[in-house]
Amino acid sequence: MRERVLYALGVAAALLLARNLYVILLVLPDEAEQGAIYRIIYFHLPAWFTCFAAFLAAGAASAGYLARNDSRYDALAVAATEVGLAFCTIGMVTGSIWARNQWGIWWTWDPRLTWALITTLVYGGYLMLRRAIEDPNERAKNTAVLSIFAFTSVVITYKAIDWWRTQHPGPVLSFRTGGGKIDPAMESMIYVNWAPFLMLAVVFVVVRMRQELARRELDALRRFAHAM
């Protein structure tokens, strides 16, 4: 049953993405100054939203692990972090391509971009730290603490365009500005395209979490086999 729900969610996400692509390319109007390139925003922002949601889930799961000492929480934390990093990569790459076209450069050390990079490195470091610690309990405990503290980097990344003057465009979404910065049809498409990203992220997290739990059982069985 769960397997079917997972497949259904994946197929629904793919269909919704295809439908959204049609609307983004052929229905929505062009942006007056940027031409076609502005359409990257329909993937750039949903990717970052998904990434932040995944990192929030990883932080909550890490707190859950520290409170309950249940390895399923740790598996959820590592799965959400890895999936969050995949969406973070989409955000970084699409942003960089947009910047190359609009600013003439792939990268600049602007506060928003720099904090986005720091967030990527911190969560990448989380995954590397997991490989470096042999003992499963120590690994889960240490990385859970890191994951909780790492979320401060997500908050700073999110608020960077409010706190500092940045080359990166300032807030445009109406829940941050009160409205008037972006056409409502364009803004709603950002949220509509966030839905399939979230659905895909859920599928990825569940699959990755199962793999993590299977890997643990496998390691325990291997130790048992060697002890026989």
């Binding site: 031409g35 990257i40 989409i90």
Partner: peptide, 17 residues
């Protein structure tokens, strides 16, 4: 659709997929 900057838009979409 306005075809200005279309190539970069295509790169962005291709990167996502």
């Amino acid at each position: 659709m306005d075809e200005r900057n279309f190539t970069y838009m295509f790169y962005g979409f291709a990167a996502v997929w």
